[in-house]
């Protein structure tokens, strides 16, 4: 059964179309990744699924039931981990989870059990009596997750749950996501970190300007661009690099700058490495290293959207 079905979903803010006629299905047991640059429309889509925003058009169904008609059913079955940490600083970790779980009708011993379970799940059982103000960013993120899972939702939506945290907490969260999935939860996961999505997601949708521009497994997505390759040129300073000029070279599909690397995606069929190097020589740009890359999700993203995932 499909846990989530979106049909022709549209959301406008004034004249601006944030989500544009989007259709999507998420099957049970999936870890479904939303990839998209800033402002692509990921959060807007997610907020409509969770019932925080009204759509202008289209339908959303959870477990086969229309959200608009049976919003209580939908809400009972969704666990929402918002992009911004949403917890009460003046309540302990335990009280936070208990309060939110209580909103889903849990009471008494069962409520207590579920709260303890959720806190253990994110590794905060030792901190259950502490106030979040004493927490690190990573611990707050974990509590943010605990507050969304205590009522055992079928569908867990995580909007950038790993933003701005230490590697240890991030690993903890990624492991938890996998564990939740093994326990039978379907998960929608958005992130700015390509590696994360590549690592844990079984299916990925690339979103740009409110539209899904590609969708499938990692392998399917990569196969879209087997006819291109990546060349990364490390330079001493990127100041003098003229991206437009490189873009104009025959066969070059996309160019971007990431720290000291110039990342060039170009057709496998065109032999243009000479031309590219010539450009660097002529501009007196010192090259430090040069590597050819097998296609990865980042290349896919760059090729499809023409921009880096994290070009803030």
């Amino acid at each position: 059964m499909n846990v989530l079905e979106i049909k022709n979903l549209t959301k406008k803010f004034g004249d601006f179309i944030a989500v544009d006629n989007m259709s999507l299905t998420v099957a049970e047991g999936e870890i479904f990744g939303f990839l998209g640059a800033n402002g692509a429309g990921k959060s807007t889509t997610i907020n409509m699924i969770a019932g925080l925003l009204r759509s202008n058009d289209g339908t959303i169904s959870i477990l086969g039931k229309n959200n608009a008609k049976q919003s209580r059913f939908a809400k009972m079955n969704i666990g929402m981990v918002p992009q911004d940490i949403a917890i009460y600083e003046d309540m302990t970790a335990y009280e936070n989870v208990k309060f939110f779980a209580g909103l889903y009708g849990l009471r008494g011993a069962e409520l207590n059990e579920r709260v303890v379970e959720a806190l253990e799940f994110v590794g905060l059982q030792d901190k259950h009596k502490s106030y979040p103000k004493s927490f690190s960013g990573g611990m707050k993120r974990r509590l943010n997750i605990a507050c969304a899972i205590a009522h055992r939702p079928k569908l867990i939506i995580m909007d950038e749950p790993t933003v701005g945290i230490d590697p240890q907490s991030r690993n903890y969260i990624l492991t938890s996501v996998r564990k939740l999935n093994e326990m039978g939860c379907t998960i929608i996961y958005t992130s700015h970190y390509m590696e994360e999505v590549e690592e844990i997601c079984s299916k990925i949708a690339i979103i740009d300007h409110g539209k899904i521009i590609a969708e499938g497994t990692k392998e399917q997505l990569k196969s879209i661009i087997t006819n291109t390759k990546d060349v990364w040129i490390e330079v001493k300073t990127t100041e003098k690099v003229n991206l437009a000029a490189i873009q104009d070279i025959n066969g070059v599909e996309a160019v971007s700058v990431d720290e000291n690397f110039i990342k060039i995606n170009s057709d496998t069929g065109v032999n243009n490495l000479n031309k590219i190097l010539e450009h660097f020589m002529n501009s007196h740009i010192e090259i430090r290293s040069l590597q050819e890359k097998a296609p990865n999700l980042e290349t896919v993203f760059l090729t499809l959207t023409g921009r880096n995932l994290r070009d803030q």
């Binding site: 009972m76 949403a86 009460y88 909103l103 507050c147």
Partner: peptide
Amino acid sequence: VRKTADRLIASPV
């Protein structure tokens, strides 16, 4: 401000 409004609205209350 604390964004907990989203959590409350997402819940079946």
